[in-house]
Amino acid sequence: MAEAQINHQDGRGGRKLLALPQWLTSEHPLPWLFPATAMLIIFGIYPVLYSLWLSFFKRNPATRVEKFDPSWNWSKLIADDRVWDAVVVTLTYTSVALIIQLVLGMLIALLLDSDRRGFGVLRALMTLPLVVPPAVTGMMFLLMYDGSFGVISHVLYDLGILSPNAPLLANGSTALLSVIIVDVWQWTPFMVLIMLAGLRALPKDPFEAAAIDGATDVQAFFRLTLPMMSKIIALAVLIRGIDLFRIYDYVKVMTDSGPGTATETLTAYTGTVYFKSADFPYASTVAIFTLLTVLVVANVFIKIFRVRF
C-alpha cells in the first residue's frame, strides 16, 4: 500500500514519525470533499429526487399499486382547495410570526445591548426558551390554553376578551394566533441573539460623531443602526422565515391542523396525507411543492434585499 511519510521538522534534517495512506495527504480536493458530498447526496439530494420521482405515480389506496402517471398528482394539487388554504395559512403564519419576532427581537436586543453589570446574565436567561423542545412547548401551552383550567384562558375570561363558549384552540378565529404566540415565545430569543451579535459588532465611531452633532437616540437608530444592521436583519429574516415556513410541531401537538383546517400549514397537510391517507406519492408532491415555494420566496427575498452570505 502506497504510504506517505510525514517528517517532523526539527531543524536537524527531519525524522520519520508517521506513515499515512497517500490519499490522506493528497492535495487533490476529491478525498476532502467526498464525506460531505456523500452526506449531502444521501440525506439531501437523494430524498428530494426520490420524492420528485414518487410524485409522478398515481397510487391506488385499495390495491396499493402505484402506476406511472406524471401529471396525476400535480393536477390534483392544483385542484386541491386544502393545498391553497394551507398556502394562505402558511404565509399568514410565517409573515405574522416573523414580523412580531423581528420587532420584539430588535427591541429586546437594544435593551440588552449594554456592558453594565448583570446584563450578561439577562442575555443568558433570554436563551432559555430555546432549549425547550418545541413539542414540549406546544404541550405546555396546550394546558395553559385549556378552556376548563388553562391559566391563559382564565385570564382572558377575567378580562372579558374571551368567552368560555369559544375555547382558544377550538375557535377558527383565534386558533392560528394562539399557535403563533407560542412560536413567538420560543423563537424571539433567537432573533435577540442574532440582533445582539450584530449590534455589538457595530463600529462606535459613527455613533460618537452623531452624538457630537446632536443626533437623538431615535435618529441614531434610524439613520445609523438600522442601515448598518440591514444585512444582519435580512439574514435573520431569511433563516427564521425558512424555519417558520416548515412549521409542524406546534400545529401537530396543539391543534392537529384544526379546527377544520384553520391552522393547517403545508407541512401539516403533507403529514396528514402521508400518515392518515397513506397516499405517499401525493404527500411527496405536496412536500416538493412546499420546497419549491420556499425556494422561490427565499430567492426573491435574497434578490430584493441583496443578501450576501
Binding site: A62, P259, G260, T272, K276, S277
Partner: peptide, 25 residues
C-alpha cells in the same frame, strides 16, 4: 369495510365536520 375507509374516516370526514361544528365554514 372498504380499503379507503381508514383514510377518509380519519381525514376528510372529521376535518369537514370540524369546519362545520366550529363555525369555520
Amino acid at each position: 369495510d372498504v380499503a379507503i375507509w381508514a383514510g377518509v374516516a380519519n381525514n376528510e370526514i372529521p376535518t369537514e365536520l370540524g369546519k362545520l361544528v366550529t363555525g369555520q365554514d
